Amino acid sequence: MKAEALKGHLDGLLLAMLEDGPLHGYAVKEALRDTSGGRFDLPTGTVYPALHRLERASLITGTWSVVGGRRRRTYRLTAAGQAALGGERDHWRQFADAVTAALKAGSWPATN
């Protein structure tokens, strides 16, 4: 699935990947791919800028560490991020319910 299809939902998805605990940036990308059954296999050029945006918004916080001689930035949810994730889930449920209702077979009015 293309990154454009996730517009408006990417932040919530990234926050959800961090709900169970801190992950480094690439692990966030891989968790999103794995939990979506490979459907959300986004390029790093999409994921990292979104993580930076979430960090600037104080929804996640990042710390540097060295693992195997490589520097990695590990991200975790903040309290504000946890609250934002709850809001994203509520918004998604409302949106999904509305789309489901609109696409329900036989729910469209006749045009003649």
Rank of each mutant, 00 (worst) to 15 (best):
Asp90Ile: 11
Val47Asp: 05
Thr63Ile: 08
Ala102Thr: 07
Thr100Pro: 00
Val99Phe: 01
Ser65Gln: 14
Ala101Asn: 08
Gly38Phe: 04
Thr61Ser: 13
Gly81Asn: 06
Asp90Gln: 12
Ala101Leu: 11
His52Lys: 13
Val28Arg: 01
Leu51Phe: 06
Arg33Leu: 07
Glu30Ile: 09
Leu42His: 02
Asp34Pro: 01
Gln82His: 11
Thr78Glu: 09
Arg70Asp: 10
Gln94Phe: 09
Ala57Val: 04
Lys29Phe: 00
His91Asp: 12
Gly68Asn: 12
Thr63Pro: 00
Trp64Thr: 10
Leu77Cys: 11
Gly37Asn: 03
Gln82Thr: 14
Tyr26His: 09
Asp34Cys: 02
Ile60Tyr: 04
Arg89Asn: 09
Ala50Met: 11
Pro43Gln: 04
Thr44Phe: 02
Gly25His: 05
Ala57Phe: 01
Lys104Met: 09
Arg71His: 07
Arg33Trp: 02
Ala31Thr: 15
Leu32Met: 15
Ala50Asp: 07
Ser65Ala: 13
Gly69Gln: 07
Trp92Pro: 01
Thr35Ala: 11
Ile60Cys: 07
Gln94Lys: 15
Arg70Cys: 00
Arg71Lys: 11
Ala98Phe: 03
His52Ala: 14
Gln94Val: 13
Arg76Gln: 13
Ala96Met: 07
Ala102Trp: 05
Ala102Met: 07
Tyr48Ala: 12
Thr35Met: 09
Leu32Arg: 02
Thr35Gln: 12
Pro49Ile: 03
Ala83Gly: 03
His52Asn: 12
Gly86Pro: 03
Gly68Met: 04
Val99Leu: 14
Ala84Val: 06
Gly45Glu: 06
Arg71Thr: 07
Arg72Gly: 00
Gly106Ala: 04
Leu54Met: 07
Gln94Trp: 10
Arg39Tyr: 09
Arg33Gln: 11
Pro43Gly: 14
Ser36Arg: 03
Ala96Glu: 14
Arg73Cys: 12
Arg76Ser: 14
Leu42Gln: 00
Phe95Thr: 13
Thr46Cys: 04
Asp41Thr: 02
Ala98Arg: 08
Leu85His: 06
Leu51Arg: 01
Ala96Thr: 12
Lys104Thr: 15
Asp90Gly: 00
Arg53Pro: 10
Arg53Glu: 15
Ala101Ile: 01
Thr100Met: 05
Arg53His: 13
Ala79Ser: 14
Gly106Thr: 04
Ala102Gln: 10
Gly106Phe: 03
Val47Leu: 02
Gln94Leu: 15
Thr63Met: 06
Gly68Phe: 02
Leu42Lys: 00
Thr44Ile: 04
Ala31Met: 12
